[in-house]
Structures are given as C-alpha cells and as structure tokens.
Amino acid sequence: MIYHHNRFVFKETTTAEQRAQALASLRRQGESIDAVKQYIVGRDVGGEFAYGAVFVIEDLDGYWQYLTAPSHAHTDRIGLPLLETFVSYDTTDSDDPDIGEQIAALHARRFAADPALTQLVTDIPSYTGSSAPAPAGPGPQG
C-alpha cells in the first residue's frame, strides 16, 4: 500500500469560499478515483500546517491512475495557486527497495507531460516532497 500525504497552508489572501472549494475538490478525488481505497481530508493538527490529505492507493498502477485522474487535475488547477506552503510525501509498506524511485518517476512523467502543472507547482512559494519537480533555480525542492 502507498499512503500519499499532502500537507499545506493556504495564502493569507485565500477566501473562505476558495478554501472550501479546494478542500471539497480534494474530497471529490477520494470519492471519484477508483484507485483510492481510503482517504481523509481535513485539519492538520500538531504541526506547522493548517490542512492535510492522505490518499491510500494499493500499488504503482493505482498511483498513476490517481495522478492522472481528471478530478486530481481539477484540484491542481484550483488549489495550487492558493497555497503558500505545500509538502507531499509517501509512506509505503512495500519491500521493493526501488519504490521511492518508481514513485518519483511517475511524478516526473506527469510533470513532463503537463508544463502548465509544472508552472503551477513552481509558483508555490514553498513546495517540497515526492511530487516536487526539480527546481530551475530558487523555488521548489525535491
């Protein structure tokens, strides 16, 4: 199993309506993507982040389905521009020593196919984790 985590803080300029729409879109991902076995979207408690989401996915094929689903693309387009800080990472019980590189390759493939998405991510003031594209200079870290 792969647990894909997202932790984030909205920009101070984000309205309550925009925040609600972004969180609802994350929930729609969990409801609409067949590869997602379980999910949670809500407050991130006990740390520096305000909100978080975790999507439980069975395997790499399901991870790719999750990454390329239309509902995921919709969340990216409406949510990423609202974020001040974003961290994504994965936890897995896989014994495959190459699982991290395989997950990173799926993200790289997705970014290579979608320059607009890559720009949305690059524009986030602070973005780190498994899905961060390689920085072109100051900006996201991977």
Rank of each mutant, 00 (worst) to 15 (best):
Q65H: 10
Q65R: 11
Q65K: 14
Y66W: 11
Y66G: 03
L67H: 04
L67M: 12
A69Q: 11
A69E: 10
A69K: 12
P70T: 09
P70V: 03
P70L: 10
S71Q: 08
S71T: 15
H72T: 13
A73P: 03
H74N: 08
T75E: 03
T75L: 15
T75Q: 12
T75K: 07
D76M: 14
D76H: 14
D76C: 08
D76S: 05
D76K: 12
D76A: 07
R77E: 01
I78T: 01
I78F: 13
I78N: 06
I78G: 03
G79Q: 01
L80Q: 03
P81Y: 02
L82S: 00
L82V: 00
L83M: 15
L83F: 12
E84K: 07
E84Y: 06
F86P: 06
V87I: 12
V87M: 14
S88T: 09
S88A: 05
S88F: 01
S88W: 05
Y89A: 05
D90Q: 06
T91S: 12
T91W: 11
T92P: 05
D93N: 08
D93G: 07
D93S: 07
S94C: 02
D95L: 15
D96E: 05
D96C: 02
P97A: 04
D98V: 05
I99M: 12
I99K: 04
I99D: 04
G100M: 08
Q102F: 03
I103H: 04
A104R: 15
A104N: 15
A104P: 03
A105V: 01
A105Y: 06
A105S: 10
A105Q: 12
L106I: 01
H107L: 00
H107W: 13
A108Q: 15
A108T: 13
A108G: 02
R109C: 00
R109N: 05
R109S: 08
A112D: 05
A112W: 11
A113I: 02
A113K: 14
P115F: 00
A116R: 07
A116D: 02
A116K: 13
L117D: 00
L117C: 02
T118L: 13
Q119G: 01
Q119E: 09
L120K: 11
L120M: 11
T122C: 04
T122Q: 11
D123E: 11
D123R: 14
I124R: 08
P125H: 02
S126G: 00
S126W: 06
T128H: 10
T128L: 13
S130P: 01
S130L: 08
S131M: 04
S131F: 08
A132Q: 06
A132F: 08
A134Q: 13
P135T: 14
P135Q: 07
P135A: 07
A136I: 03
A136L: 15
G137R: 15
